[in-house]
Each structure stands twice: as C-alpha cells, then as structure tokens.
Design a protein around this nucleic acid. Sequence first.
DNA 1: AGCACGCCGACT
DNA 2: GTCGGCGTGCTC
Length: 745
Amino acid sequence: MYVGVHPLAGFDKVLHYRVPESLGAAVVVGSLVRVPIVNRLHLGIVGEIGAPKDFPVEKLKNVAQLVQPFPALTPDLLSLAKWMAAYYACGIDTIIETMLPAAVRNDAGLKIEKMLVMAEKLPEAELEKLTKRAPQQAKLYRFMVQQFKPVKKSLVLTRLDLTAAVVAALVKRGVLREEARRVERVAYADEWGSGEVVAAMPPLLNPQQRAAGEALAASLKADKFGVTLLHGVTGSGKTEVYLHAVHDALAAGGGVIFLVPEVALTPQTVARLRGRLEAIAPGQKTVVWHSHLSEGERIDGWHALASGEARVVVGARSAIFAPVQNLRLVVVDEEHEPAYKQDETPRYHGRDVAVMRAKLAGALCVLGSATPSLESFANAEAGKYQLLQLTQRVDDRKLPHINVVDMKIEIMNSRGMTTLSRKLVNAMQSRFEKREQTILFINRRGYSSSMMCTDCGHVEECEHCSITMTYHRSDERLRCHLCGAERPAPMSCPKCRSVKIRWRGLGTQRVEEAVRRVVPRARIERMDADTMSKKHLFRQVLGDFRAGKIDVLVGTQMIGKGLDFPNVTLVGLIDADISMHIPDFRANERTFQLLVQVAGRAGRGDRAGEVVVQTFTPQAEAIQFSRQADFAGFAASELKMRKDFRYPPYRHLIHHGFRGPNPEKLQFFAEQWAKRVEAALGDKVELRGPSPSPIEKIKDEYRWQLWYFTAQVTKVVAELTKLRADFTWPDDVTQVLDVDPMNMT
DNA sequence: AGCACGCCGACT
DNA sequence: GTCGGCGTGCTC
C-alpha cells in the first residue's frame, strides 16, 4: 500500500511513501504519521491512498510510524485544510499545524502515568520469607494485594514511603506489573463545571423564540448543509434558541461546535453553557477549547472529541478545527465579532471557516448576532442564508425609533449648509424641555475624507478597486489608498455636474456651535481626542453627564463604547456616511454596529428612545455602497521575512495572493506591488502568475489567482518593512464579502 | 525548512 | 588551479 502525505516540514508538496505491513490497515486518510525526509523524520498527514503518478514506486521510502491510532484529521477537516490553503494563500502544512494542537503533534502533552497492577500472588510461605529478607517489598506487596484496580505508581511510592527500587524488584519477580496509561485530565469537568444548577433550568420560550427554534429543527432534520442567520436584538434570547438546536443535533446523534468570541469565554459563561448543555443532554461531556488551556487539557479534550467520547465543543476561533465526529451543527455566536479573525499566519476568519466546515461536513451552520456583519446580512438578503429574526426582547423593553434623515433633501429645503437636520433640532429641543439628555455622535474617523456631491450624493471611487478615493487638500488630488492610483480632484460632480461638491467632515466644534444656536440654554460638553487629552477630564465629563449636569454631549467615537446612561433618550448620529465612505469597509460595519448598539441603549425603561441618523446616503443605499467597497482583499500568507539569515542562503518567495472575482483587479494589485518593490530595490522584479487554485471543484470565478513575484530578500527585508509602514493595508486582509460556499459546487 | 549542487570571484 | 559566498532546486 502506498500513501500520499502532506509533510509538516516547511514546504507544500505531497510526498508518497510505502506503508509497511505492520501498520497496514491502521493507516487511513487523515492519519498522523512520521515520515523520513532526506535524513530526518518529519510529521505528516496522510492525504490520499495510492501510488504516486510521477515518481518511481521502487524509490519510495517507508512510513516510519503511525503517531495516533485514529485519524488525526477527519475527512471534512482535511478538505477544509485544502480549501483554506487555497483561500488564504498559504501552504497546507501551515493550516494543518494550526488544526492540530501542538501537544497532539509531538505527543508531548500525552502525560503518561505509570500504574501498578498485581500480576501474581505469592504463596504464604514466600510472603513470610519476603517479610524477613525484604521488609520493604513485603510492605508493598501487602498493600497491592488489597487493590482491585491499577494504582498510580507515584502515589504508592509516596504513601508507603518506598523507593522505585522496591517496585522494580517485585516487577522483576513477576509479582507486580507496571503499566503505562495515558492520563485523562478532565477538560470538561473543571472546578467551574458544577454549582450552576439554577441556570440549567430552561426558561420558557416566547413565541418568536419558539418559531426560530422550530425553523432550526426543520433545517437540522433536512440533514444537509445550510446557513441560518439568527438576527436577534439584544436581550432577545438567542442563546436559548441555539441550545434547542444543540439539543436536537445531539439527539440525532450528531456532534456540535459552538463558537464564541474569545472574550466571552469567561469561566462564568463557560460554566453556564456547560451546565445547560449537560442538562439538555445528560451524560454528554462538553469540551471547552480556548487559548489558555494547558497542553494537557487541550490534548485530553482533543482526544475526547476525536474518539467520539465527547460530542460537543465550546470554544473560541480555533475550536472550529476540533475533531468533532459526525458534525451536525456549528453555532457561531456574535458572528460579527472581530475576535473571530486570526491576525497571524494563517490569517483566517473563524466565521467563514465555520461556514465552510459546515458545508464540507453537510451540517447546519447558525450565525447569531444582534448586529450581523454586513456580509452575513447581505448573504441573508440574497437568499443564500436563511434569515430568522427575533425582534422582541425577553424583558419586553421597547426598541427605539430610528429616523433616517436624508441630508440631501434637508439641504435643498433649507437652501444652505446644514449641520443639524430639522428633525434632530426638534427632538433636541423637546428633550431639553423634558430635562432628558442627548448624545450627538459625530462620525469621524481618521482624517481620510472623501469627495462628495451634496446634490446627488455621488462619491468618487477608484476605478480599479471600487473603494472611495481619499481627498488630499494639500495638492487638490484624489488618491486611492489601496492601489495608490491618483488623479486631480474634480471641480464639479462627474455625475450630475453640480458644483456643490465638497469634502466632507464636520468637526465637533462646528456641531457644538450649531447646537448652541438651537438650544441656547442647554449645557453642552464636547468630547473628542483634542479636548480629552487628559484621562481624568474624560472621566469627569462622563461623570457630570451621568449626574445630569450636562444636557447635550457632543463627541466622536470615543463616547461610542460603553455608554449606558439611563436618562439619554435621544441619540443623534451626524454624518453617518462618512465612515461608509472611507476606504475600509470594516469601519463602515463598525459604525453600523455602533448605531445599532447606541440605538439599543437610547431610552428609559418606560419609554422608547429615539435615534436620528443624518446621512447623505440613506441607510439602504449606504449599506449597498459599502458592499461595493469590498475589494478582493489581500488574502495572503504574511510577507515572509526572516531575519535569521545564515547559510544556506535564504531565497525567498515573497508572495502575495490576491483573491476575488475580478482578475483584472487582481493583476492590477499585483503589478502595483511589484512596482513598489522594484522602486524600493532599484532593480527588476519578476512578476509571475496567475497560478490557478489547486482546488478544481471551485467554480471559475471563485478560483484564486495567485500572483507573486520574487526578489532577493537580502535587499528586500528592510525596504519592505518601510513599505509596509506607509502602505495602507486593508484593515482586514482575510475578510471578503463573497465568501460563498453556497455557490461552490 | 534544510540540504546538495553548481556557479563565480579571490585566495590558502 | 580550488575555496567559499551565494542562488537554485529537491525532498517520496
């Protein structure tokens, strides 16, 4: 028998080996093996069974060892690795290394404990003799005779105050037997596991929750891949809905992966989840998976899942690679959270990988959020994902009214520049009369500003990258921060010829002045990076605001987080679309989510709050726009920069992968990069490509193209570091909207 | 990755 | 001439 192996040796190639008789049937696809490469042993994953096509069979070496008795990667994980390698432009070995916990790879974490068992009893006479001649051995013997189960050698030695020599003597006589046993640390029953009995009681579901639960049950019953976006407002009880689905999946004999953002993995939440999970499926063990586990805990959890002993794993990002058997359900809670992104090579997005793994396993994937990410929402709108909504809060607190004001119309009506819309002014005045508070949130981020027509809302964008171009006032030019393209700023709107084209961006100061004009008697405080340079000032202002000494708080995003003021019943979002237009679509999304969060907080228990959103591109359009701003991101393995140069000469392939549906765009990026490197080096760089994705099954438009160029690293390292610093990297290199496993056949 | 092979300039 | 700095290609 011959096998093709993916070696974990730093290069990305399948090597073939002969499987010796002794290993035979135990070696299957997904097995972790040790194989000889040149003159040393490396780990590898069996990727296929069969002889090589272009290598003489006689020359094949033997597989040296089978590291794990069961396959280390399930078939779905193996195909997931292949997909990720192509999608995120990195070697499959890198992916496999992240999939397998280090402890599993070098079986170091396997804590072996020596156990002692009785092998043969001694006749009375022998024992008498032993008592005289070797009292220590006799003592040990007497103890061991009473034991029914194997006992830990270390324990026996300390308890009976013996040395290892005594044990060895009895083992040699054949009286005792030493056994090595893998220790099962119980990663699923730590000190937090119990004592949460109350939380284990399932609360009654409201009709909406029940309906969502039933819809998920139906999807699960269909027993095939599907994605459901569970869009539930804060406090609508999404967790209960997940738990019902988990229950159904377990009842059907399937496995479950439950992903939460890393920060959510506090002992309390873990304990609560585990309590509930173990209550809905008695006897089921729940493995917890996060980065702070010890090696031992990790390997035990891994083994429990790989062997099928445990079927549920709750964990952060990397838990998506857990070797769960017969995977039926993947839950991604708070799917919009940036914590799902890995910002080291291999850069991947846990949520996207979750969707793909579900697809490969034929499972149901549930993405849940109060503020779904744009791409998930777009996928739901496009009908690719099923959309379930929970609009009622469990506590029945009212949701605020959200008014979107189109500033184009506002400016038209007032015949002039307008900072605050009529709607917002009225609302502010009425709040002031009622002694309620207002927050005006000015959406300004960085100093990127775009060119926008105040008549038609047109924004200039880069023809190559479809992102908004940045206006540079110093030289009156527009630049694309992604590809570096530039052109003179137009004097009139290219679309409607209007001359009312201006660069956008209101300062807190101007807003403050405007507020002072319309509510002269109100106490107004400004809060932005300029005025809040001192920490205590920041606290003081927030304190004053909370105490009711301030009526209107005007600020930038710094007031966005953690604002929970009971007396605030109005929130105004000025220039909502500024961050919709900055060339970083991830920022758009943050603004959008912030909006939803702010909206959720506005209002008092008894009455719904109000939110006024001022925009030139009313919401639907704005979202649409930011979807276009999605570009074929630089998915890419990181620049490989090694500083430890030594002989043998490093020669590096600096490669950048560019993915996306538009080959021209990709080529353009690649060429831009090549140019930059050339300029930095002062000599020619060879650009090669595109090389197609190694995955044949993916439809052509989703096929990657990998463009790469080679250059001598000696010169490049320093230069690239500089380049990197002044190059505006897309905020999110792995993030792409067109994650679309639904359309891959 | 790590190692061998083979190229080219400057020396035991 | 050959030694070693360095680029390239291969590893079953």
